[in-house]
Write a protein that binds this DNA or RNA. Sequence first.
RNA 1: GCGCCCGUAGCUCAGCUGGAUAGAGCGUCGGACUUCGAAUCCGCAGGUCGCAGGUUCGAAUCCUGCCGGGCGUACCA
Length: 577
Amino acid sequence: MDNVKDILRKKIFSAVSSIADNIDSKPEDIVVETPPKPELGDYAFPMFPFAKALRKSPVQIASQIAEMLSADDANSYQATGPYINVKIKRDSVVSDTLRQVEEEGDRYGFSNSRSGEKIMLEFSCPNTNKPLHLGHLRNDSLGESVSRILKANGADVKKVNLINDRGIHICKSMLAYKELGNGTTPESENMKSDHFVGKYYVEFTNLSKQDEKAEERAREMLVKWEKGDEETIKLWKQMNRWTIDGVNETYEKTGISFDKVYYESETYASGKEEVLKGIEKGVFYKDEKGTVWVDLEDINLDKKVLLRADGTSLYLTQDLGTAIKRHGDWPFETLIYVVASEQQYHFKVLFEVLSRLGYKWAENLYHLSYGMVNLPEGKMKSREGTVVDADDLFAELASMAKNEIIEKERAEFIDDIEDTSEKIALSALNYYLLSTNPTKDMIFNPKESLSFNGNTGPYLQYMGARIVSILRKFGRNADRASVDTSLLKTDDEWDLIKMIGAFSDVVEEAGREYNPASVTSYTYELAKRFSKYYHDVQILNNEDSNLVEARVYLVEMVLQVLKNCFSLIGIPFLEVM
RNA sequence: GCGCCCGUAGCUCAGCUGGAUAGAGCGUCGGACUUCGAAUCCGCAGGUCGCAGGUUCGAAUCCUGCCGGGCGUACCA
């Protein structure tokens, strides 16, 4: 269904075409803007692009086209300099927009534009030697949100995780536990199980400072692991279980889920086979020591090692195998890797190598690269202990939310304070992490994210809760069959309607750009306009019961759109907070 | 050195494929609760869009060069 903008684009286009036969653009290319002042109109069309073809000044074109369109149209067209400003005849747009929200409900704003497109998204990818940290939270937030946005555009999305459960770093925590653990368990120490494992990873660092043989013993352990030594495998399984159980708890709390989980320990071997095939194809070569290389110097990517002389594999080798396996499991059109920007080089190489191996789908692989999360004090460094633990941060946010609830004397209205506090914490976190463009490094200010003032997730939740509160007080839904939307004629009401009508464009853009920030800023803008409306207008207290009915209807539809936004950016909807 | 990314208000960030006077939030200051939830709203102040060229009717946006910062350039992941 065409929205107001599309209809206007077509009108402008056909008007321009009627006085020029050499326009080489399409109606979709017509630029629509919002006039700088609302008095000027609802939409603006600059005429600069047609000046050359018509060999007239944009000012002349604007006035000519405006006149042509005004002749036979309910909307008003006003030429202001080189712009045509359009004031919409509101009645039908108001009613059409609200009816559409009512009909489509929690699908409003979503589309089928990418229907049939199979998109696999990889994100999170924890190591099994320590719990999640703040960087993972950005990754998870992005991965989950982008996949929801793509689904909202009709795509068939599969979310996958890859657990990095093998390698020297895993052996380090295993070794420290073996030597220092004394048979303790997360239960015996009353610790969350991934934190328990993480403790031994830190212990290893201390150990290796005093004992220079520690590194060597860790390497020996890796060799034993590769050989399938029974005792080592048993320990490895135990510790992986602990970490993964703990990480899953965090996923659960933060609303993250996967359709399929891959384990590096299960996929890394297949990478080796692919490399051997690649040698036969002549894509790779073996040097005199037996090391396998790929030469990408022709495209300025250097030479990279794929297999060590001893036959063991590398990161690149594993990712190669994993990608090929995945395409075999589920033949995607696109595979999006949500991975930090520091790995850009790695993915360039990976994609190039896959392409040289002859996989056509390699050209549709995409690295959704995101910047680092830093603290106001500076960089997070594990060595200096400035890494922000995901669970700790979340617990701190929840506890702040709880204090806020108590301080504002809201506790008596809330059934489950713990649950509500966590939902507020989650909205604060997700909104903060998603509202910065992914490509940029960002500074996470815990204090600011906790303030809940201004442009934040809790603000959005609050606006939702206020609407629910109005509806509760009203006691029933608006009478949808008889509601007279033409009574909604204030500018605040019109602003809300226009905003609601623009939602589908936002969802489309967010999907195209893989950027949830379009949705976060839209949601804030919508909530803010509602808030202003709420202050300017008494929704329920009015003698005219038809007007009350219409306003309640409007507000119900605003709530629907807010909820649809929330579902895309990880903001839990709260009826009461 | 080379490659990629970033540089917009005191701070944190928006600004779509170039378009009318560059916008928010926080912070500062000043207003608004006997009225639908003040986790709110309204207002004031705050900018040579890193610098210099170029393309264009028009540049925060595109191109080039410089300056400043980050990341990468491992037989680590």
